[in-house]
Nucleic acid binder design. Structure first.
Length: 468
RNA sequence: GGUAAUAUGGCCAAGUGGUAAGGCAACGGUCUGCAAAACCGUCAUCGCCGGUUCGACUCCGGUUAUUACCUCCA
């Protein structure tokens, strides 16, 4: 039984998918006007872990996400660089894939762009007008927020408050086009001839920000989907508006479970351009040579909690991950000479921790507790590694279990012991020979040489062990 | 102002009515030719003040601090 915290009800609820064994989830993707920042990565990783856990639990997950490839930020950036909007969008959409690859984020089942669903968006908007939920005004089309019963409940915002806030913020021109300050645009008229636009029944224009997600969720998933995710800041207005549009359009409940991830702070401050701590994944990957440590930090914090990103938290993540890798590697070393059979006592200790892991993850993806179970497995592995005699099946069972659980966090390839150069191999062999003849002076010297070549040697009762 | 969230050891971070998981760091020990790795051990009374209770970090009230959202934002 999996429980998830639903932002809509502000409670943990038992998760039941609409179709048994299958999950339809939609996660808001980035606006492709720049390299993704660490916050985008956190969101992508948080939902990647959630997806992976559902898959671990044998669900078939249909994971849809978007690229917002048309909006003001892209238009502005294109202007600034003197290129067209799609050049910008393409560049950063490609960068998204390049940056998420080393972080081992699974590709979405469907990754759609706003500009790929323009006809559907126009039809959706037309339907909203027909149903009386939206109106055209000087080429813009606005959604009548108040007409939708329950508007704002996702973010638990008070309607009159929102209205007052909105009225104070909007410029007069925009206010005159709207019937009500809290109405939001589902279609925006184009105001410049060199601006990207599509023909519509309301003239040349482009989609409003929120509409693409409503359209894609319906097109690629269903009228009612199981899970919708995104950063907590999207609860209002983005998701609030999606609910209004989608439910006005279909007459059905849009989403059963709303999941929102917490923010990433950088050096204990909110990340923002003005503070100069805007951290892109692109830069991080250049500066830091262990991308899995970045993933570890982002994946092992519970998804709703804030994360502080700093060189300190990152190096702690790296060290913690090293402990797991070392334990895994050390036990792997015993595999080749393990004897047949298995040790039931150890096997059952493993089973127990796997169960702890699952219980933790079942509880709204409590990754810190799940991780504690992995560390217990590592201790079991280390202790078992020290036995004079180890059994093949148990060694494998331990290794497989650690690997399987870590892959839920998206951390794979725990050993990086591949590819020795000829030089390295012969030095290793020479060292074995030196030790056999108790020539420690030579063996220590060889150890140092190997060290400088990036091969680290350790001596064990079972012989020389090395890693890179 | 409105709506929420958070405050646990040197750091990160679980727990949430019966005397505090896990990781990092530190210290002591074991093992080792040395080293490394590992293992064992040591290291907190949970922001503050009240209340409820046989018993509270855990519930209630108050208080302080920090943070987020309130139509750019993961």
């Amino acid at each position: 039984m999996i429980q998830v915290y639903n932002t809509l009800t502000r409670e943990k609820e038992v998760f039941n998918s609409i179709t048994p064994g299958k999950i339809n989830m939609y996660v808001c993707g980035p606006t492709v006007y720049n390299y993704i920042h660490i916050g985008n990565a956190r969101s992508a990783i948080a939902f990647d872990v959630i997806r992976r856990y559902f898959e671990y639990r044998d669900y078939e997950v249909n994971y849809v996400s978007n690229f917002t490839d048309v909006d003001d930020k892209i238009i502005n950036r294109a202007r600034k660089e003197g290129v067209d909007e799609l050049t910008i969008a393409n560049k950063y959409a490609n960068a998204f894939f390049e940056d998420t690859l080393p972080l081992n984020i699974k590709p979405a089942t469907v990754r759609s762009r706003a500009t790929e669903v323009i006809p559907e968006i126009i039809a959706f908007v037309a339907d909203l007008i027909e149903k009386g939920y939206a109106y055209e005004s000087e080429g813009d089309v606005y959604f009548r927020a108040k007409k939708f019963k329950g508007y704002g409940i996702l973010a638990h915002q008070d309607l009159s408050e929102m209205e007052a806030n909105a009225a104070g913020r909007l410029d007069d021109e925009e206010l005159t086009r709207k019937e009500d300050p809290i109405d939001f645009a589902v279609w925006k008229a184009s105001h410049a001839s060199d601006e990207i636009s599509w023909q519509s029944p309301w003239g040349a224009g482009r989609p409003g920000w929120h509409i693409e997600c409503s359209v894609m969720a319906q097109k690629y998933l269903a009228d009612t989907i199981d899970i919708h995710g995104g950063g907590i800041d999207l609860a209002f207005p983005h998701h609030t508006n999606e609910i209004a549009q989608s439910e006005a359009h279909t007459g059905e409940k849009f989403v059963n479970y709303w999941l929102h991830n917490g923010f990433v702070n950088v050096n204990d401050e909110k990340m923002s351009k003005s503070l100069g701590n805007f951290t892109t994944v692109h830069d991080m990957l250049v500066q830091y040579d262990d991308p899995m440590a970045i993933r570890y930090l982002l994946a092992t914090t519970q998804y709703r909690r804030p994360i502080n990103y700093s060189s300190d938290t990152l190096s702690q993540a790296h060290l913690a991950l090293e402990r797991i890798r070392t334990g895994y590697r050390n036990l792997s070393f015993r595999l080749s000479k393990a004897s047949a059979g298995h040790d039931e006592t150890v096997d059952s200790l493993v089973d127990k921790q796997v169960n702890v892991f699952e219980v933790a993850m079942d509880d709204d993806f409590n990754t810190p507790n799940a991780l504690a179970a992995v560390f217990e497995l590592v201790t079991i592995a280390n202790t078992y590694s020290e036995n004079e005699l180890v059994k093949n099946d148990t060694v494998k069972y331990l290794l497989d279990s650690i690997e399987k659980l870590m892959s839920v966090f998206g951390i794979e390839d725990l050993t990086t012991n591949q590819g020795l150069t000829e030089e390295q191999s012969s030095l290793l062999e020479a060292r074995v020979a030196a030790r056999a003849s108790h020539d420690f002076k030579t063996s220590d010297k060889l150890r140092e040489e190997l060290n400088e070549l990036g091969v680290f040697v350790e001596d064990t009762p079972q012989g020389q062990r090395w890693h890179k």
